[in-house]
Write a protein that binds this DNA or RNA. Structure first.
Lengths: 229, 229
DNA sequence: CCAAAAGTGTTAGAAGTACACCCATGT
DNA sequence: ACATGGGTGTACTTCTAACACTTTTGG
């Protein structure tokens, strides 16, 4: 009795894609050139296929826009209000992804009408996508305060001041340089590469890379990153 | 093209219902007297109706088993592997609930074949329900270390030793009495009722109640509860 | 030589942890 | 009077937060 076709709904996946350009957090958003809501901005999304695992579907959708695989991606929440999509009953399982903004396939993104927009100054999005972004930001802040996920947004080699600018962007507030660097180094998650940043216009900063082994081990260890948060 | 009936799936809701009997954490589980998997144990679940918001559906399903409303309930995660339900493609949005075990409608639960079983010694559950319980416990531990949600599992008036036994059950490890009580009281979330526990066989402990006003305010404030965690 | 960003150390206060003694109650 | 569990204080250690000077580099 409960297995009626009328009770089946479309399951969609929407993806909040974060990037960092060295100055501020960005979102990869779609300027829709298709119906519904053509011409408006939305998250990247798509429908789950009948023969596809949920996580696989989410990764497929991310891949279709960025060309990337093996990306940090986490399930955020499922949105299921009856009228969230005016066209048809659709339940959306949201994911958020952290990617290195310089590594994605920019042409592919552009061909799908994807644009990197400032998180803070983003346009209004369709449906309940604004709520999704809000929640994703909240989750990112929460998570990044306790777990070392920020690195996912940076290139392989990065400096501590770069990392600090990232955290300042995430929390939209400044941190003390000395305390920040001490705290980060005390986690032992960074390895000195011996190299120095060539792009600096002043004193060149030391480039670090993640200590992958420790990173894997400590990932769920519940560090205490941003105490001021 | 994507709006095919074949791409529609059933959306179910499963609910991990936690309770605390003063000694250990319990789960409200269903001994299935219906197909599929008749005779086996499962979480309480049901299908989302086509005209029903997701959260409303989850609350309906919880209500059908416990008779309770206004329960602490939080979305856990959505499980969507293709073959998770062998009978038909079903995506399950999981919720977990914290309830005061003495307040639910025991007859109603029994009439639906609901039984409170020990979390630690629970039987194997059907489908991917064991994973759901694991994840729910993990989330409960995570959350309870930072937010004051434990109170949801206790009666309106409770003693600090009771609260401590609850936290010890959640983390399956002992805490120091003196530090625990100092830490809890320092949050200012408890109000002394002036009454004392009548059930004690030795010294009677002071009964507290939540300071609702502060509770609401501080709920998202990111306290640091169990530092030993 | 000046401006701009990187690197580093110290100190005071707060919070966390470990630990011991006294009190109230029922048997 | 004794066993059981409740209540409280103190000292030690660790973490956090605030803060200033020196170094490197390009222009």
């Amino acid at each position: 009795m409960e297995y009626l076709v009328e009770n089946r709904v479309l399951v969609a996946t929407d993806c909040i894609i974060f990037g960092f350009d060295g100055e501020e957090l960005k979102l990869l958003l779609i300027k829709r050139n298709f119906e519904p809501e053509k011409g408006k901005w939305s998250l990247m999304g798509g429908f789950l296929r009948a023969d596809e695992d949920l996580e696989v579907g989410a990764k497929r959708i991310l891949h279709e826009l960025t060309g990337l695989e093996n990306v940090y991606m986490e399930q955020l929440q499922t949105f299921g209000e009856v009228n969230r999509d005016p066209a048809e009953r659709t339940v959306s399982v949201c994911f958020f992804a952290l990617i290195n903004i310089h590594e994605h396939d920019a042409e592919l993104a552009r061909s799908r009408n994807g644009y990197w927009l400032s998180l803070k100054e983003r346009p209004k999005l369709i449906f309940d996508h604004d709520r999704m972004v809000e929640l994703a930001l909240q989750r990112l802040r929460y998570k990044a305060a306790l777990h070392p996920i920020g690195f996912e947004l940076l290139p392989e080699k990065f400096t501590i001041p770069q990392l600090q600018r990232l955290y300042e962007a995430i929390y939209d507030s400044p941190f003390d340089r000395r305390n920040f660097s001490r705290k980060i180094l005390s986690t032992k998650l960074l390895k000195d590469t011996g190299e120095k940043n060539e792009h600096g216009v002043t004193k060149k900063a030391v480039l670090y890379r993640l200590d992958q082994e420790r990173y894997q081990k400590q990932f769920n260890a519940f560090l205490h990153f941003m105490s001021d948060f």
